[in-house]
């Protein structure tokens, strides 16, 4: 199982992608628990705000596109964890 977070937009318009192989993580069960708890498919359509980031989060079969202000709660936890693994923190 793989989670892919890609962040586009921002004033720089630079796209960054972070990936995590969930099964290779020492805390794989807690990753799965978090992934199962996410409200996939419940993202609301909101008007984009200038220069804010746009996040595309994929974990087959799910995919969601979230504007930055909506990346809160469990979504924020996920994005922070994925970044932390990629940045070796």
């Amino acid at each position: 199982m793989k989670v892919i977070v890609s962040r586009s937009g921002g004033i720089a318009g630079i796209r960054v992608t972070w990936e995590v192989q969930v099964d290779e993580q020492p805390d794989a069960p807690s990753w799965r628990e978090l992934l199962d708890s996410l409200p996939w498919g419940q993202a609301e359509e909101t008007a984009p705000e200038p220069d804010r980031y746009v996040y595309r989060i994929r974990c087959a079969p799910h995919e969601v596109v979230l504007p930055e202000p909506q990346v809160a709660g469990p979504w924020k936890d996920l994005v922070d964890r994925v970044r932390a693994v990629n940045e070796g923190r």
């Binding site: 586009s8 937009g9 921002g10 318009g13 796209r15 746009v54 595309r56 596109v65």
Partner: peptide, 26 residues
């Protein structure tokens, strides 16, 4: 690390994308 500046300077290089609200910064 960042790659190359992806901005086109004419319609010949127009980028079709769903990212970045449809490439607004590109």
């Amino acid at each position: 690390v960042l790659g190359k500046d992806p901005q086109p300077g004419s319609m010949a290089g127009y980028i079709d994308t769903e990212d970045d609200n449809g490439g607004v910064h590109l």
